Simulated scan of single mutants.
Amino acid sequence: MIEWYLFLPQVGLGVDELTLRACTAETSNFDGVAFLDHLETPMAPASPIWEAMTLATWVAARTERLRIGHLVLCDPFRHSAVLAKQAVTLAEVSGGRFELGLGSGSMPDELVKFGFGTATARDRVTALERTLIDLKRYWAGDEAAQVPAPSRPIPLLLGGRGPRMLELVRRHADWWNLPATHVHDLPSLVPQIGNARASVQQMVGFIGEDGDAEAVTSKALRRYGHFGAGLVCGRAEKLIDHFGGLHDQGAQRFYVWFSNPAPESIAEFGETVIAGFG
């Protein structure tokens, strides 16, 4: 069974606008919503961005069914003991709807700018491994355990595609996510993730029934054409075929990232593309 998440970067929109889109996703066949985690907007530092865990808590309080997560939380931003407590709290207040997505940190300049150090990519992966081990200790009930413990397992998603990250996926993760810029690598990477389930982030230039195909496609290509196969443009029928092909390659969840995340587009996508998979 395919799972569908709305990937909703909290950039350029107010909190009320983001909440509206999440609530629209909930009533339009989506299973979850995911935010990003940065202290400044990637490639546009003057553009406002909201804090990831606070926004997730806000949206969780205003939805009933939607699962809540991130692609992905930046490990260097939070001490593992604080992260463990935040995750348990958000999982509890949401009725078990929170999923913990983690990565080692993809923007070294951001880490330096805000005082998180100058660790190499290799060292950041090592630090992420320590966090994963710590989380198990804090949640497992041994002498280091925090109280309260999770009342139910908190699903863990890891993002990244290097050999050391894939080893962490095999050892620790319930889910693994492939970013849109590397969708073409899905067939070669799925065999390397062990028992984890595969998810794919996909940018979509969705052309609604009454949409202008040329206008939607040209705008999406201008903004996201560098994604290559990570961008797909089309009406519902084409997108059903596209996602079906990725499912055949091993993807079990899709994080749909709209080139134009208007509430109307989110609703129509859910009512046509997602519904098309039964």
Rank of each mutant, 00 (worst) to 15 (best):
L6P: 01
L6I: 06
L6M: 06
G12A: 09
G12Q: 06
L13V: 00
G14C: 00
D16K: 14
E17C: 04
E17H: 01
L20A: 15
L20M: 09
L20S: 07
L20C: 06
L20R: 15
A22T: 04
E26F: 06
F30M: 04
V33E: 04
V33P: 00
A34G: 05
L36E: 07
L36K: 00
E40W: 11
A44R: 13
A46K: 13
S47P: 00
S47D: 07
P48W: 10
I49G: 07
A52V: 04
A52Q: 10
A52R: 09
A61C: 11
R62E: 01
E64L: 07
H70N: 10
L71M: 13
L71R: 05
L71Y: 10
V72S: 13
D75P: 00
F77G: 02
L83W: 09
A87E: 03
V88Q: 07
S94G: 05
G95D: 13
G96A: 14
F98S: 12
F98C: 10
E99S: 12
G101Y: 07
L102M: 13
S104H: 15
G105K: 12
E110Y: 05
K113N: 09
F114H: 14
G117V: 07
G117Y: 12
T118S: 14
A119V: 02
T120M: 12
T120E: 06
T126L: 14
T126Q: 13
L128R: 06
T131P: 02
I133D: 13
L135P: 02
L135G: 00
L135C: 02
K136C: 01
P150L: 01
S151K: 11
S151T: 11
P155A: 04
G159T: 01
G159P: 02
P163A: 14
P163Q: 13
M165L: 15
E167L: 09
L168Y: 07
R170N: 01
A173K: 02
D174T: 00
D174S: 05
W176V: 04
N177K: 03
L178I: 14
P179W: 11
V183Q: 02
D185I: 01
D185G: 02
D185L: 15
P187Y: 03
S188N: 10
V190N: 03
P191W: 11
I193L: 04
N195L: 13
A196H: 05
A198R: 06
Q202G: 02
E209Q: 15
E209T: 14
G211R: 07
G211T: 07
A213V: 04
E214S: 13
A215M: 08
S218W: 03
L221E: 15
R223A: 12
R223Y: 08
Y224Q: 05
G225K: 12
F227S: 08
A229P: 05
L231K: 13
V232G: 04
G234R: 04
A236Q: 08
K238A: 15
K238G: 09
K238N: 06
D241Q: 15
G244H: 10
H247E: 13
G250P: 03
A251Q: 11
A251R: 11
A251Y: 10
Q252E: 15
F254N: 08
Y255K: 01
W257Q: 11
F258K: 09
E264W: 02
A267C: 10
E268R: 08
E268Q: 14
G276R: 04
